[in-house]
Computed example of a mutant assay.
Amino acid sequence: MARRRAVAAVLTAATALSLSVSCGTTSENSGQGGGGAQESECGGPDGKYTIGMSQANVAEPYRQRMDDDIKAAAESVPQFSVEFADAQQDNAKQVSDVENFLTKQIDLLIISPNEATPLTAVVAKAYNKGIPVIVLDRKVDGDAYTTWIGADNVEIGRTAGEYVATTLLPNGGKIGEIRGLAGSTPAKERGDGFREGIEGKDIEIVQSVDGDWLREKGQSQADALFKAHPDIQVLYAHNDPMAEGAYLAAKAAGIEKNLKFIGIDGLPIPSGGLKAVEQGRLSATLIYPTGGAEAVDTAKKLLVDCQDVPKEQTLETELITIDNAATVYNEANS
């Protein structure tokens, strides 16, 4: 059950050797290179701490769930108060949000970057001020942060590709792909991994389009994709909302029964990917844990418990099909 809830961090030996401590770094990093000398100050259990949570875009259900998970976990830590900011998929606004947190002198920053490169410098700025920085889900360039928490998106993409190759298209076929936001690390990694999963098979990705993680854009992009390539057999989307949008486009065209749809996220909510698989709209999804609870636990270790944390914390995932969708949903909500 714990594995299915994806709350365990899987750490490699190399990761375990790279530790960050409670209050950032004294080195001045560009954001492209490694950290320097580490400080070891920690306020301890008697302190009160303000956490700034900079979210990329809460219009995405996954990101709203991430914020909800952070809020719920923080309520059990009496020393914590959390302030949330929504960048609304705007890099400049997210930079401004983080700058605002720094002006308020927050004690720790959690950030899920909209895109990697545009957010790298401001993340490094916070880190170099001695503020612990937890990078959640999406990444920035370099390693000027305290810890990154997320799932292995290359492995997720690879698993999706292998599922398509072995189960949906064992004799080969044609695929359409709806990518996430260009410039966000999961979009590249989920695409790269998927191609690894279908490598050597008689499977062709006939077209890839950008859906920016959004259901509505996924639907419009899929509609054009289906018209341009009526021979597509499988639609691979980088998240469940875009996969659901593609399903709606296919249904409107009367071709949904001719296609298979696969997404990523597997949120355990009525409108999430687990129910979409259980109800037959999606053939499969993959659990992509929000990391919200793990981020708060890490913040507690850094600020309250004065403990070291690993540089990377990789969360477990799971392939969801009709065989296990209901069970995983019920376990996640028990």
Rank of each mutant, 00 (worst) to 15 (best):
G183Y: 08
K227A: 15
N258G: 10
E189S: 12
A237F: 00
G266Q: 04
N239K: 03
I205L: 11
A250W: 02
K217F: 09
K260W: 07
G245R: 09
G200R: 07
P186F: 03
L248D: 14
L181T: 15
D265L: 02
D202M: 04
T185I: 04
F226K: 01
E196S: 06
I198D: 08
S184Y: 08
G183Q: 09
N258F: 02
A253L: 09
D240F: 13
D212G: 06
G245K: 09
I264L: 05
K257Q: 11
E204W: 11
K227L: 12
D210N: 10
R215K: 13
K201H: 15
R215A: 14
S184M: 09
S184F: 09
A250S: 10
G266W: 01
E189V: 02
F261Q: 06
P230L: 11
V209K: 02
D240W: 14
V206G: 10
L181C: 14
I198L: 11
V209Y: 00
H238G: 05
K217A: 10
D240V: 10
D202C: 09
E216Y: 05
D231L: 04
K188Q: 12
S208P: 01
K217E: 15
A187Y: 00
A222P: 00
A249G: 03
A222Q: 08
P241C: 08
R190P: 14
E199C: 06
Q221V: 14
F261L: 12
A243C: 15
D212P: 03
A228Y: 02
A224S: 08
K217V: 12
R195E: 14
G200H: 06
E189F: 10
E204K: 15
P241K: 09
L225Y: 00
D223Q: 13
E196H: 10
E189W: 02
R195L: 15
P186T: 04
G193Q: 08
I232Y: 00
V234M: 02
R190Q: 14
Q221C: 09
